[in-house]
Simulated scan of single mutants.
Amino acid sequence: MTVSFRAENCVGCGLCEITCPKSAINVYKIESGYHAEIEGCIDCGVCTVYCQYGALHLDSSPYQKILDRMHYSKVEVEGCVYCGICAENCPRDAIDVEKRLEKEKVRNGFIRIGEGCIQCRNCVIFCPTDAVRLIRGKPVIDESKCIYCQICQASCPKDVIEIHCDSCKLSMEYAISGDIQISDSCSLCLTCEKVCQFDAIHVNRLFEGEQRFIAERCLGEECSICMNICPNSAIGYEYGEGKVVVFSDACNYCGKCEKYCPGDAIEIVRHVSDRYTEIHLPEKRRDYHEIRALVSVDDSCIGCHFCEAVCKIAKDAEMSAIRGEVELEGCTTCGLCESVCPMGSIKIVERY
């Protein structure tokens, strides 16, 4: 039994590194993303509990047994109408909705279209005669094709469509059932909870916290690293006498912004939610100032200055003129310059 690392889910936030009680995990920035070295692990499971992105997994551990005893899940779903809006809006594609038409609940009907369509497309998907279309956010039914079966009415979660049939005497019942699956890559950003119009989905965060912004350390308007690298798009800026970093409730306190801020202007403080006090989360055990960034720029660079536009460190170092490998003072290996380079000329790796 050992902790497995799923590189495709890792965002490099470093929570596993700074909380591992044995300092057994090192996550490195490599050219293709992130790589974890795990040595000296005691299988306590702290890292798997702390990881917000499903990048670490352990089949059984003391911490996992506590979660199982509490019947904990990242997301709870009750009263779902399977409209699929949560899946469409999930920024990490962590939600999969399967919907089915329960034909035994369907009967036949005349046409009246009301207001309130949420564009779930149930009516379009399940119409047996292809009579329904969404036009400008509202269902439109082609009466030349409609057979008044009332499938569209039965599948509408907002009762926007009314079909009447003199020969139908059964009472109507919502006719869609299905399944909803949440993957480990769910990052607890609350998007699904916000977009659900039926209050059917609820996100459970193991811990809460606060974000502290130290304005005098911030590199100013020329730096947007924290906003651009936030996995949950939870950071924005306000400007008055100076720049202020503002956090939305999508923040899950992963600390990626803190790790990669070149000015050490952000501090993330976490504590266990009152609902889950059985879980003990260790204090921070890693200082990321020990990281050295190795930046490589190859000859395919066209000097477009995109890297310098998104990073003050790159701008001050005149990175567009660099060729070969160089250690840039102040670089935190956030990888933003690498991600915006149109030629793929930049590679960044970490060195300890």
Rank of each mutant, 00 (worst) to 15 (best):
S177H: 08
G54Y: 03
Y148T: 07
E98N: 14
E143F: 03
A154T: 08
I176T: 03
P91E: 05
Y63K: 13
I95Q: 00
Q52G: 04
E102S: 08
K74E: 08
C127M: 04
Y82D: 01
A87G: 11
K65E: 11
D96H: 12
A55E: 06
I161C: 06
G79N: 03
L56S: 03
D130G: 14
R100W: 04
F110T: 13
K145Y: 03
K74Y: 08
Y148C: 05
E162Y: 14
I135T: 15
K145R: 14
I66R: 05
V124C: 09
V49S: 11
P139T: 00
Y82A: 11
C80G: 04
K158I: 09
I151C: 00
K65T: 10
G178C: 06
I111R: 02
F110W: 12
C123I: 09
C123G: 08
Y82F: 14
G114Y: 07
D68S: 12
K99L: 03
Q52W: 04
S73F: 12
G137C: 09
C80P: 04
Y53V: 11
E78D: 15
I135A: 12
K105Q: 11
H164E: 08
S60Q: 13
D93G: 15
S73K: 15
G79V: 01
E173F: 00
K158M: 14
C156R: 00
P62I: 00
T129K: 13
D93Q: 13
E98P: 03
L58D: 04
D68L: 12
T129M: 13
Y82M: 14
I151P: 01
C51D: 08
E98F: 09
Q64G: 09
I151K: 05
G114Q: 09
V106E: 04
C165K: 15
I66H: 03
K145H: 06
A55F: 02
D59W: 10
L67T: 00
G114E: 10
Y174Q: 07
I118F: 07
E173G: 02
C83A: 11
G137R: 13
P157Y: 03
L170Q: 10
E102L: 09
I141A: 00
I118R: 12
T129R: 14
